[in-house]
Design a protein around this nucleic acid. Structure first.
Lengths: 212, 212
DNA sequence: TAGATTGTTAATCGATTAACAATC
DNA sequence: TAGATTGTTAATCGATTAACAATC
């Protein structure tokens, strides 16, 4: 794998490559050219070749790319085989929705625990995942090295929970609270990935409002 | 409001401006300069002035911007005062989480109905929102002009539901299914805004895997 | 008035697209 | 071999940053 800083634009396209290649593979497609893949993904062939060249040489002149092996390469690039572990903070509707319906395993993540403050939830299991008291979080993280913490807590709790996750040694925070976490100054190198529903809907609002 | 095509990069920053200005306003801040706002949002002062200049002149030399009135301008630009209506397709965990916990009203949207196939849900209300049978969708959209449809259905149903929403005359689709909808060829001008959890988590996976 | 800060024009930087020699 | 298609270098396009006259 080449060592060069890969631009964020490229990184954000990688999961789409993975998704499309998975679909193609399941549809039985064995090989594909950059121009065919581009057509199906709404990208130029140039861009696809340029993107992939950040990571290596996966194609063959005159042939194109083998769908399955390219898919595997992208999975590897994305770190999907690294057995990351993940815990969820906040078992409200959204936390529960993720636990019950989101396939962490498909992304190479193992969901190991959930945490909440509600006494009626603590000690129960949801889809086989144990719910602990938030009070046990720090100890848990110490005992169980964890790659990512998911923040599905109320916005008012976001900053404090984020700090505890960082102190607990997570490498990333998947933030569903409608706020910008400030982790730069922690010097921890922790990555925050935001899923801002509200921002997303407002973007849509703008786009439909501008229509003629 | 100036008429120029505004770049997607700028549009995606607008909700963040709105969010930060709301916070500032609630914190009692009356005026702010582009450089101070930039510092708090991790943008350059230039970029902020450049962004805002796409839509008009909202500042004053030597003073900066009035927080509250800039916030109101951004809200207007985002179309938040247009009384958009919205319906949810799919009342699983995620649909329910949105109905019960997401404040559509904060974004200027009125949530008017939900649809599902489950007999035990149809006819009930969730947080005051009536759940209809998916079979009634087309008639409903005909009777109640709707701005946006939210797709929280299983991926297998996404394409069909998307088509029915478009035929029903929505202007936008808020897509939570892990798939790329192809609406370009419908010639309808419908806007799709995606919230791809899986892509987001894979991006995070990449970023934490690259760390030293 | 002097200092601060805007909106805008120009300069720089980065990302996308095009072109093409290499080669399967 | 001839045709197809890659990886990469060069050209273009767009977005961000810097600079500055205008002015509150």
């Amino acid at each position: 794998m080449k060592k060069q800083k890969v631009s964020s634009a490229v990184i954000r396209r990688l999961p789409r490559y993975y998704r499309h290649l998975t679909d193609l593979s399941q549809a039985g497609v064995v090989r594909i050219s950059s121009s065919a893949l581009g057509k199906s993904m709404n990208l130029t062939a140039s861009q696809i070749r340029q993107d992939l060249s950040c990571f290596g040489e996966f194609g063959q002149q005159g042939y194109g790319y083998n769908v399955e092996s390219l898919r595997d390469e992208v999975a590897e690039i994305l770190g999907m085989s690294r057995s990351h572990t993940i815990v969820i903070l906040g078992v409200g509707n959204l936390g529960r929705a993720l636990i019950e319906n989101f396939s962490f395993a498909n992304g190479g993540f193992e969901l190991t625990a959930a945490f909440d403050v509600a006494p009626e939830l603590i000690g129960t299991q949801i889809s086989g995942i144990q719910v602990y008291s938030i009070a046990e979080l720090d100890q848990y993280l110490q005992d169980h090295p964890t790659s990512v913490g998911v923040l599905t807590v109320p916005q008012s709790a976001a900053a404090a929970m984020s700090e505890r996750l960082i102190r607990g040694g997570v490498k990333g925070i998947w933030n569903f609270t409608n706020s910008d976490l400030h982790v730069e100054n922690s010097g921890s190198g922790v990555i925050v990935e935001n899923v801002h529903f509200a921002d997303s809907l407002l973007t849509l609002s703008y786009l439909i409002s501008e229509e003629p």
